[in-house]
Design a protein around this nucleic acid. Structure first.
Lengths: 209, 209
DNA sequence: TAGATTGTTAATCGATTAACAATC
DNA sequence: TAGATTGTTAATCGATTAACAATC
């Protein structure tokens, strides 16, 4: 019943693809179709599904609406998750405007910045001074934060978030956060991602093609 | 001599940490130190190094400047890689302003957007209409593109990039690009990353802690 | 029935970790 | 020498793929 780490990530992708199929008017899919759409093999799809107890019909494939219901259950999509964003600079501001989170039932409810000039409102999201993090997180039961502060203060701010009660951090700063084991950290290092890509493009070029 | 996939990624992280150590005035590190800074085990560090032919001294650890030189060689950091960005919306504009790429010897030399209102200049980076992609990529020998266009046009634009000669794409759109095998694609789906984090925070809460 | 598709078990592949030998 | 550290080999762990049995 419990899938392993990567399969949870794939579940999110399947979910997105399934909704696209649904919009196109389909009611059923085969593992083959879904795999193609999500960029994985058909076997992978079936393996993932079976590990989460998602079943199809031997010849009729999977019923999209059923799948979506169960995936939503697994991913706990029944209610909207409220998250905060810390650091309303370039990247932070862009994320505040990003529409893609809504579909995943995630809402950025507030942002925080050390620079008083940046506080106020961005669209419908309030930007508060850093001092308010603690009370806001406590009062609203926030568990997840997006961290888009400069490298130099990332560790500090991370510790503050933890002391306020944050359990998960999506870290866009280039530093490796050193926080208690129980804190779940996802690290997106844009420069490293790009560097990695450049490396493989070079490697491909070097090899005889 | 050839490391495996993940070790290349870690090499980028080691590189960043090593430079920090260097700024602090250190000239040598032990695998233990570096592991802590990069968030991996000391054994992992030594394993990675040995697979790339990076050697230390049995008791004296590794010489930082030597390591950096060799890592730069491996990651082909001798010259600046010129990349383009397609889609100068919220996220695209933020990336155009992002300073983090410079350190990795990567430079965004031009951006492209379908909306004539968005063409012109952003800081020192020119934003051209989409039609210019083909000639620009050809004339400047660009191999890597950052894709920050809306979901609906991502596949189309991806195909265009490929026909212009692009070899690697850093894809921020939520769709799985279907492009020739030889094209190297890195997929960063911000919503999925956040969703994944939320899932694990929930899972941690559900479990008895 | 034959063919297509799911679902599971076994085999393989790849990455990490453990154990330890080498040596400064 | 003893202790600390590297570097390598072996063991383990986890994820993917292959093979195939079940069945609609």
């Amino acid at each position: 019943m419990i899938g392993y780490r990567n399969s949870i990530l794939r579940l999110s992708h399947y979910r997105r693809c399934l909704r696209q199929f649904q919009e196109l008017g389909y009611t059923r899919v085969f593992s083959e179709n879904l795999g193609q759409a999500a960029g994985v093999s058909a076997v992978q799809v079936r393996k993932d599904f079976s590990s989460f107890g998602l079943v199809g019909r031997r010849k009729g494939g999977y019923i999209i609406s059923e799948l979506l219901d169960k995936i939503n259950q697994i991913l706990k999509k029944d209610k909207i998750e409220k998250v905060i964003l810390v650091g309303a600079g370039n990247l932070g501001s862009a994320l505040l405007k990003y529409r893609g989170f809504e579909k995943e039932s995630i809402k950025i409810v507030a942002a925080f910045d050390a620079d008083p000039a940046k506080t106020g409102k961005r669209g419908d999201i309030p930007v508060y001074p850093m001092e308010k993090i603690f009370s806001f997180v406590r009062e609203n039961g926030i568990r997840v934060a997006i961290l888009t502060v400069p490298e130099s203060v990332a560790q500090d701010v991370g510790e503050r978030l933890v002391s306020a009660g944050i359990r998960g951090i999506l870290n866009f700063s280039p530093v490796t956060l050193r926080l208690p084991e129980r804190i779940i950290i996802s690290h997106i290092n844009l420069a490293v991602e790009l560097e990695h890509l450049v490396y493989y493009v070079h490697a491909g070029t070097t090899k005889a093609l």
